[in-house]
Write a protein that binds this DNA or RNA. Structure first.
Lengths: 158, 158
DNA sequence: GGTGAAAGGTCCAGAGA
DNA sequence: TCTCTGGACCTTTCACC
């Protein structure tokens, strides 16, 4: 492995997180390098998995997804099979944008994005309630989004 | 306003959410159109704000951010100025990836991404605790990430 | 709305230092 | 590891349908 992660790599990642469509020429200019080394580094960062993928980030309201819910879920069965089965079911629910296994008084935290409360009800009744071993479910709703960042801050990373 | 959002627009958004670097030629091929109309539509979708931006999505572990916390915050002052001041302070904390104003027994939910528990402690003590009118704070930690999607599902959207 | 072609820019490999 | 160069491909515009 020859990846010594330097300042230039960090600069590339920082800039591409903010705008994935910067050309190599532009990156080279901003990082005071020429195009070829930038090209090589970007490819290496992709191949080594630093960059997972490039995504268009949409405006949630514009596409009619105005409601965001955070849903805390407890499961009845905490065996390995129980948890695995739960995960597989949850992944299939397209409205679930994020799902985490958590410490604390509940087991899973879900971020669910839908059009309105009617659609949330449908997800709860038709999809979530049908998952095996579901226990207590508690819902919290987003009043307003104050910050939603996809870019990690890398400034103090070595 | 001349934007009647059709199947082709939806296809473009769906595909670009998954891979922002698809060429117009490739999009055209997959959506059974030619290059120019795709080009015009992509530009319109950007200009009208459907597409907010293009982002490189990084591997959180690879860049040394192995810990994710969800932090519930109550504020003491619920006046308009109090809430506004809180928002302004929170936005500045670079470790806070997401912040939502919520319904329910707490006021704000934060997703905080850091290297380890030491760094979480630093954020709490040096940054969050210094925000004016902060009240009760409760922390929950991610054991494992089961799903983390940036792409909304558009299949039933009209 | 769509087609097709022309001009300019970008990507990416190869040779050489 | 970087610089330079050339060909292939992509983006973007324009005249026309």
């Amino acid at each position: 492995m020859s990846h010594q992660f330097d300042q230039t790599d960090m600069g590339i990642l920082q800039l591409l997180q903010e705008d994935a469509r910067l050309t190599h020429k532009e990156l080279a200019h901003r990082l005071h390098k020429s195009v070829t080394p930038i090209h090589i580094r970007v490819r290496r960062l992709q191949e080594e998995g630093y960059i997972k993928r490039y995504a268009a980030i949409l405006n949630q309201d514009k596409i009619g997804k105005s409601l965001t819910a955070f849903t805390q879920v407890q499961v009845k069965e905490h065996s390995q099979e129980g948890l695995l089965a739960f995960k597989e079911e949850i992944i299939k629910i397209t409205e679930v944008m994020e799902c985490y296994h958590m410490t604390g008084s509940f087991d899973f935290l879900l971020r669910i994005v839908i059009r309105d409360m009617k659609e949330y009800n449908d997800v709860l009744i038709d999809k979530l309630a049908k998952v095996k071993d579901i226990g207590h479910v508690e819902s919290f709703f987003v009043i307003s989004e104050i910050k939603h960042e996809t870019a990690f801050s890398l400034h103090t990373k070595t």
